[in-house]
């Protein structure tokens, strides 16, 4: 019962972004995907979620092919994701951003919702309750009625993760959830993600923040030039000379990797501020 990539490939014209990657992800664990810029981490997430097509190979969840499904069908098979560049429904309220995730379950009752007010309010109340619970978990309840686009950057990141959690997904894909967050926010995020480690959930986190990855993940995959370079526990990854080489060319110290992550965080911080 796993998520599995089998000889997965992705090519953009001549560029090979993912080169024969075979890997499997066990439930109950948090899997980290790390690697230098352009290694193909986001491409992996995008293919799994159906945002990009697969060039060859396959992706299966519990033995069922995902890569042949449409994006919305993949979502309805229990795969939820966030994006490297936040993608919220900006002009909908924070609460609505979560409520709309009930569409696949509730859409069949649309007619009844329109014609029969008591049914509609019961449904709305049920949706509201479940969503408010998630908002409280992320300490976003005070923003429930604000437009999602008006939230500070860090809150938007949290909201996007909250939205991904509404359908209680089997597979949770997070693309750089800590990008642009300050130390305090990153610590909050780490604690919340740790609390969301459920026995049958497969969580995959793409992240440059090594502190977060090392403290949160049970299993780490290192990508380099589209290839799977190394797979192991945080300790094994830190001890591997290959990984250090891949990351920094010549460096041989995990502190240098950290420094690189800091650097990137600073860049993203600037981008985030410009955005708001």
């Amino acid at each position: 019962m796993t998520l599995a990539f089998d000889r997965l490939r992705k090519q953009y014209g001549q560029v090979v972004a993912i080169d024969d990657v075979t890997a499997s992800f066990a439930p109950g664990l948090i899997h980290g995907v790390i690697g230098p810029n352009g290694a193909g981490k986001s491409t992996l997430i995008n293919m799994t979620a159906g945002s990009y097509s697969v060039s060859s190979g396959s992706i299966t969840l519990d033995g069922k092919r995902l890569d042949t499904l449409k994006k919305y069908q993949i979502a309805n098979s229990g795969v939820a994701r966030t994006y490297q560049n936040i993608r919220l429904f900006d002009q909908m309220t924070v609460l609505e951003n979560l409520e709309v995730c009930f569409y696949p379950v509730d859409v069949a009752g649309t007619w009844k919702e329109v014609m029969w007010p008591p049914y509609a309010s019961a449904r709305r109340e049920r949706r509201r309750e479940k969503c408010m619970e998630i908002l409280r978990f992320f300490d976003l309840q005070g923003y429930a009625d604000s437009d999602a686009g008006s939230l500070p950057y860090g809150r938007q990141r949290m909201l996007e993760i909250a939205r991904a959690l509404v359908p209680n997904p089997r597979v949770l894909l997070l693309d750089e959830p800590a990008a642009g967050l300050n130390h305090h926010e990153t610590a909050e995020l780490t604690a919340r993600l740790a609390a969301q480690r459920l026995p049958d959930r497969i969580t995959i986190i793409v992240e440059h923040d090594m502190d977060l990855v090392m403290s949160l993940c049970d299993n780490i995959i290192v990508m380099h030039h589209g290839k799977l370079l190394f797979q192991g526990t945080p300790a094994e990854v830190q001890a591997s000379p290959d990984v250090q080489l891949a990351y920094l060319g010549t460096a041989n110290d995990i502190d240098d990797i950290r420094a690189a992550a800091q650097d990137r965080r600073a860049q993203l911080g600037i981008r985030a501020r410009r955005r708001s």
Partner: peptide
């Protein structure tokens, strides 16, 4: 009726499509 439709789950899905069609597909619409 249309106002009730707007507030129904289908109405919310329309809004999501308006805001970001691809992200709307990503949440199973």
């Amino acid at each position: 009726l249309v106002w009730r439709l707007e507030r129904s789950i289908l109405g919310k899905a329309w809004a999501a499509i308006r805001e970001d069609q691809d992200a709307a597909r990503g949440i199973g619409i």
